[in-house]
Design a protein around this nucleic acid. Structure first.
Lengths: 130, 130
DNA sequence: ATATTTGCAAATAATTTGCACGTAA
DNA sequence: TTACGTGCAAATTATTTGCAAATAT
């Protein structure tokens, strides 16, 4: 039965550590640039493949930025991507969403829309960037 | 002073009419396909340029779909892109958002996040697709 | 030993651009 | 007429893939 292994490699550790240090959405190219700066020689395709791997495992959240470029961020609850994204530093913080869920429910009642998933993003300035 | 004109052309009328008929997010390629089906000979670049033009005017909303491809939809209030997107037919309906605004306000108080803009999307089944 | 990951170079796919020609005003 | 729009082909950019070599288990 298909239970594929999960090798721990230098590239993967580096990419994970970058995502873990910078708690914000990064593109594959940005991650690749940081690797080179750190002196790590990892190919861009490996970055893409690793990000895809992490996404499949549910370890990171992916979203397309305004230009449509894919970006990735470490994020535990794989199913609730609610973030407050700072227009200045780009950092994203998680947002608790009890009120959100409640609103989603009222949505269904008023609009007859059966909800499978939802995504909410705020754009602005975080506390430290004001 | 730079107030550019706004010519009414065959291509633009067609593209506007397609967006007006289909109230859902369409990619440039999808719009182009519809034009050809209708027997209209419009280049893909013109589709892109027209969509960009409409977006600049604030007549349409743009968003990257899950694959990162740009999609466009006719949408009056240029600053509030809240949509309920049907996973089946793809149609997007506007969602009233008084409760949303209120939630955004509490966000600021609790997280110290100064809000510039926000985007909210629901994915599921609309009434007629259930 | 063997399955998995990687690098590299080439293939795709979406989008943009330069430029000569067409068209609305 | 003249500013704006369009087609076409070429350029750019993000992402994916095939395959042989490297590496983790």
């Amino acid at each position: 039965m298909g239970s594929r292994a999960d090798y721990v490699t230098r590239s993967r550790e580096w990419i994970a550590s970058i995502l873990s240090r910078e708690r914000r959405f990064l593109s594959a190219a940005e991650i690749h640039r940081r690797l080179r700066r750190a002196g790590e020689r990892v190919s861009l395709s490996t970055v893409y493949r690793t990000l895809d791997h992490l996404r499949a495992k549910g370890d990171i959240a992916a979203r397309a930025d305004t230009a449509g470029e894919a970006t990735f961020m470490l994020c535990e609850p794989a199913h609730h991507h609610h973030h407050a994204i700072c227009a200045n530093c780009g950092r994203a913080q998680d947002v608790d969403c009890a009120a959100m869920e409640q609103f989603a429910e009222s949505l269904r009642k008023r609009h007859g829309f059966r909800l499978d998933d939802h995504a909410l993003e705020f754009f602005g300035r975080c506390r430290s960037c004001r």
